Computed example of a mutant assay.
Amino acid sequence: MVKRVVLAVVQREYAAKLAEYLREEEPGWDIAAYTHDSALRRELQGNGKIDLLIGQPELLGQVMQMCGKAGKIVALVDGNSSVGEHWIEIGQYQPLPTILSSIRGAIGLEAAVSAEGCQTWTVFSASGGTGKTTVALNLARQAGERGLRVFYFNLESLNATALLFGKGEPDSLSRLLYTLQTHPEQWDELAKRAIRHQPQLRADYIDAPEHPGERLALTPELTEEFLRKLKSLGRYDLIVIDPDSGADEWHRRLLEISDRVLWLTLDDVQNLRKTEKLLRYWHEYFADKMYKFAIVMNKSNGNRFVNRLEMPAASEPILLPYIPQWKTVDQPGRLLSVPAFAGAVGELLVGFAGSDGTTNGGRRRREGGYENERTRSGGVG
């Protein structure tokens, strides 16, 4: 188990920021940071055990002959370094959560969360225009702020999340799906390279394809296997899934295997009738699983309904407020910054998951919970 950690980074501000973040996220680690080789040498010459040494190659290279007492060595590289013989390399200029995740993986801590400890929550609707992606993004953000390790998975055939995430590598999902079917033993390593972190969202993700072919080719079996492999990485407490609307077999299977389903609808007669028809169509599959469904009435103007959902097995709808200013929003990131909506989604997360604000099997990163969490830096460099 990691106890003593030595950080060796030339840039004083970078070293201070990374050390502070590691202390917050891993309170059991005793962290010492050094920016000069002379101070680092004195540390290495001491008698104390060092479980983990994290540093830049320029510092590590100067003291390499003294590093035998370090249990594990991780080098922070800028992308131009060759693979070190004596250490494991990770990228230095990444968001802080990604750096920590890479460090955990390098020293074998990623398996601390089992696949059974990771839950999948799907945000679904029977028709478009319900604000499904906005709810899914806010759900991921609120879960991340509560200390859960979150993966946001967009499965829309046509999506606009690149406005938030950037273009990235649009072939990532295609390669992962192909590898899963042809060389499944290589999938884990490819996935770790394809996964990115979005600091504002406080969640990991995979770049979405430019074209809808991958989504349209999904089968129930491929969907289930992909999620199983994603959970088996052991990196997440919660996967938030954002599929498009539809009544295909893979949609139904996705809802079946999800731990929670937030089914969005609006207070208009056409949307409600579509919801009723699809629930009845799938009733034989979901009859004994309605406990994991929550009907969510989005864009609500209050506690009064003009229309009613005529489904005896459905729960009373949960309300999310209508946000008029979103009609003029031109940046998706602004969808995450409305306190009234974020608060309502946070209550939904707590109410649907449990009174402690975590998913079953999830965990808080620190005692004190959400109210005492400090705003974390999204990245370094």
Rank of each mutant, 00 (worst) to 15 (best):
A194Q: 14
S355G: 07
D248E: 15
E189A: 14
N47A: 15
I295T: 07
L18Y: 01
P243K: 08
Y236M: 01
R146G: 08
T223C: 14
A140C: 09
I88Q: 02
R23Y: 09
G48E: 11
V338Q: 10
E316F: 10
R202I: 06
L164Q: 06
V123F: 15
L164H: 13
W29E: 01
R12V: 02
G131N: 08
L216N: 09
G68K: 06
P317V: 06
L222N: 08
V329C: 09
W326M: 13
N138F: 01
G351N: 11
Y285N: 12
I295H: 04
N301R: 15
L7R: 09
L139E: 02
I90F: 10
H283C: 06
G46N: 03
Q11Y: 11
G28L: 09
L272D: 08
G381F: 05
Y291G: 15
W29A: 10
A194N: 09
A33H: 09
W29R: 07
T122E: 02
D237V: 03
I90V: 15
L7A: 00
G108Y: 00
T120I: 13
M297N: 10
D30Y: 08
L163M: 11
R4W: 02
K229P: 01
L233Q: 13
G68E: 05
E214I: 06
L266K: 06
G55R: 04
D248I: 07
L18V: 13
G333F: 02
T35W: 04
E284R: 13
T219H: 00
L190R: 14
A70N: 03
G346F: 01
R280E: 15
Q198C: 13
Y322L: 11
R23V: 13
W121V: 11
E145W: 02
A342T: 02
S174G: 12
T122S: 14
M290D: 03
V329A: 12
T120P: 00
E310R: 04
G369N: 05
L109V: 04
F165P: 02
R196N: 08
E214C: 08
A33W: 12
F293D: 06
A115M: 10
P199Q: 12
L22P: 02
L164S: 08
R273L: 14
G302S: 10
H197Y: 15
V296N: 08
G343F: 05
G302R: 12
E25S: 05
L349F: 05
W29C: 14
T328N: 11
P170W: 11
R149E: 00
G166N: 01
Y236Q: 04
L349R: 00
V269L: 15
Q331M: 09
T120L: 04
V6K: 07
I241A: 09
G105R: 09
G108L: 03
N80D: 12
P212Q: 13
A140P: 06
Q11T: 12
E284D: 12
L53P: 03
V380T: 11
S258G: 09
V338N: 14
K277Y: 10
G333N: 12
R334F: 07
E256T: 11
T161Y: 02
K72M: 05
